[in-house]
Design a protein around this nucleic acid. Sequence first.
RNA 1: GGUCGCGUGGCCGAGUGGCUAGGCAAGGGUCUGCAAAACCCCCUACGGUGGUUCGAAUCCACUCGCGACCUCCA
Length: 495
Amino acid sequence: MHSSLQVYNSLTRQQEVFKPVNPPYVGMYVCGPTVYGLSHIGHARCYITFDVIQRYLKHLGYQVRYVRNITDVGHLERDGDEGEDKIAKQAQLEKLEPMEVVQRYMNSFHNDMALLNVQPPSIEPQASGHIPEQIQIIQQIIDQGLAYESNGSVYFNITAYEKKREYGKLSGRNIHDLLAGTRVLAGQSEKKFPLDFALWKKANKTHIMRWPSPWGEGFPGWHIECTALATKYLGPYFDIHGGGIDLLFPHHECEIAQSQAVQSTTLAKYWLHNNLVMIHDHKMSKSLGNFITLEELFQGIHPLLSQAYSPMVLRFFVLQAHYRSTLSFSNEALQASEKGYLKLINGLRVVKKMSYTPSNLGNPNPDAISQIEQYVASCYQAINDDFNTAKLIAELFQLLRFIYALEYKQIDFYKLGKTTFELLKKTYILFVEDILGLQEHCKAAPQEFLSVILKMYAQAKQQKNYEQIDLLRAELKKLNIMLHDTARGVDWSYI
RNA sequence: GGUCGCGUGGCCGAGUGGCUAGGCAAGGGUCUGCAAAACCCCCUACGGUGGUUCGAAUCCACUCGCGACCUCCA
């Protein structure tokens, strides 16, 4: 019925028709957070993006297994022997057990994701719970002759790997170019070659997080965790691997190398990367320190913010751009998104309670019907075009015009006919609520209370009791609800 | 230095050869007890220079500016 889904594959650098490896099943792996701090807007963009992708794949009828890991070990501050484990470092700062740090920020992450209406993944494995699996893969890489032990640590042997496979395909690099930009760091003496990366690191005496291994006590390298977890739960070759574009190199490149080494696959068929959130023309990131945490955003406690913004406003803001474009963050942009979100979501309320009620039996208007059908088709074309949610939202605003035209009796239902009306209603709800995952952000009052108030308002209106009306309006305004008169009587909206 | 990408109206942001998204803001109007919501009108842009073409924001060349990755980062 609709054009088929196409996705941009970073591995081939082109848009391809999406064909699952083993339909109707779809396996998707997304790199999750390292839980040593609060999540920020950049994290939100990534997980909202893949949430929508996951939702749409389900809508298409695929049985999706979505795996998103929690990195709680092995992620070092820097490369080389001097790097400190992020979790361990934070544990020292907060005077907590490492696993206490992990639990704290994992809880916070889950809370943020729930507020953003990001559906939980099917499986959310923690790296620390899968040490044996990681050791096993490392051993397999050694057995292939593609890794070596050095002073209790194990490194991936790029030189040996290059003789069998090509390193750098995903990021479009070659060893020569990479070497040109390599700084010779002190403490890399354990490596045979500068581009070799750690699979297992020996724990020094003070290192808290340590596990026994064939190479002594230590901990796994960062890249091996994703290869191990993805393979365990999705098999050696699955459909989609996602993450932020900043992970493309070296992280994802290394994942592919590890997978090629032991199972001769690129791990995933399609590699998808979301672009970054920019702030003042620079990437928002932990290392630059220019990030705004989700907590700060939702509470409005940051110098750059003039007010608090609801999670749904952020979700709308993110989805108004295509996921592969950079997105410039500013207070002004969020203000615009808040208005746009409210418009879209008030429309959702209106259309949900709307039913086909023609005033008479006139003839349908072919032009109106054709227009709606075209907008509906455009919605599918947009989402099928590499998840172009920006375009999709534009089309939804077009459908919204018809919804209000019906609501305000500028057009009668009979002009659309029941079939087209139902198509309009169904499509709008489907995309806004189910696929984009936007929902009403205000839970100001239960519907029952609101309807009582609306009755009081209508009564006062009849009696022209303007004092009473103004009072009701003023009180509800405090709850971000606006009462207003429509062609169909009294109604309310979020403001 | 290497690799890659971007520059769209006041802001955010779609758009890869003709049909010139969308949201917000600004201005005007309809409606209204006053409003709000909604609707209508208005504002019509593609860093610069040159080229290809009947025709370019869209292709090519040069140029200016910005960014990402090459170290941790969603």
